[in-house]
Computed example of a mutant assay.
Amino acid sequence: MTVPHRAPSERLASSRRQPLLVFAGQSNCPLAQAICANLGVPLGKSKTEKFTNDNIIVHYEESLREGDVFVVQTFSTPVSDAIMELLLLIDAAKSASAGRVTAVIPYFSYARSDKKDSPRISIAGRLVADLLQEAGADRVLTMTLHSPQVHGFFKVPVDHLSADRVLSAHFKSCVPNAHDGVVLAPDAGSIKRASQIARRLNSGLAMIDKERLSDTEVRPRALIGDVEGKTVFIVDDEISTAGSLVETVSIARSLGARDVYVAVTHGVYTGPAIERIAALDVTQVASTNTVYVSPEKIAASNGKLAVLDVAPLFADAITNIHVGQSVSTLFE
């Protein structure tokens, strides 16, 4: 029997568990507010200040005792401040007798540091996981880790959300006959994600094969698949400086792609990214709001940037965690 879907606020109202409390660090308050709007609960009151010596202090302005606390903090610029603020918020919540503390990290930037691929470096993804657990996080909720194995760095439960449903729906809204297009993976590491979106669109699939020349230099070698005369959907986990994106679009265009749409989970957009996107031969570059994209960046992109909302997905996941239901059902 199919169980009818109820809004997060309806399911929370029927729950007799400890109170649900959602707080936000300073890195992405708009997303936290949107999550709370979907949950039908107010954003909790907290205050973060920085002393003249650059030390951070956090303070909750309401009782957390026995509450089910969710702290929303994405690891965006300045990343070190965001991490430190989250650690302090977790520690303060545990000291205030919170019943459970979940770190909601929409963008876990240190997931890129998941292995020792050169001598004498730190596996920073594991280190940050250890810090979060030492601070007192009882579980973690995140989205689209650059390397899924980072999940294994944690000894507490981790719920790893996917934006595939949101990205696929966006492509369908942009291109009514999206099934005639091709989803293009910019490298072998993105092929699984691209394949899942291609199945959702019932479209074709292609991949760019790259050759690593050194630790810092990668060269495209071949395209596996056919994009000639097709609408191409480029998907990836994130865009940082947009260097790889420029390269991928150039290859797709040189091989006869008709229209190019880009969608990623995390729009970090650092350095020359906005200038590169503004000059890029694409119809649109979309990212979700796991990372805050300012109106100034959108305006400077020559009308090419779009931001997709994943707050409803996070709200559903938080509701399921709070009432003790499976998070994986959100992807069925």
Rank of each mutant, 00 (worst) to 15 (best):
N28P: 01
C29N: 15
C29I: 15
P30C: 07
L31T: 11
Q33T: 10
Q33P: 09
A34L: 13
A34D: 11
I35W: 11
C36E: 03
A37T: 14
A37C: 13
A37R: 13
A37V: 12
N38E: 15
N38K: 15
N38G: 09
N38Q: 14
N38H: 15
L39E: 05
V41P: 08
G44F: 11
K47Q: 14
K47T: 14
E49T: 12
E49W: 03
F51V: 14
N53E: 12
N55G: 02
I56F: 04
I56W: 01
V58Y: 00
Y60F: 15
E62V: 04
S63T: 15
S63H: 15
L64E: 03
R65C: 07
E66M: 13
E66H: 10
G67P: 04
D68T: 03
D68P: 02
V69L: 04
F70G: 02
V71Q: 03
T74C: 11
T74I: 07
F75L: 08
F75Y: 14
V79R: 11
S80T: 15
A82V: 07
A82Q: 03
A82D: 03
A82S: 11
I83L: 13
M84E: 06
E85Q: 12
E85N: 08
L88Y: 07
L89C: 04
I90P: 00
D91K: 15
A92F: 12
A92P: 01
K94D: 14
K94G: 13
S95C: 10
S97H: 13
G99M: 01
R100A: 08
V101G: 00
V101F: 03
V104C: 05
I105Y: 00
P106F: 05
Y107I: 02
Y107V: 02
F108N: 02
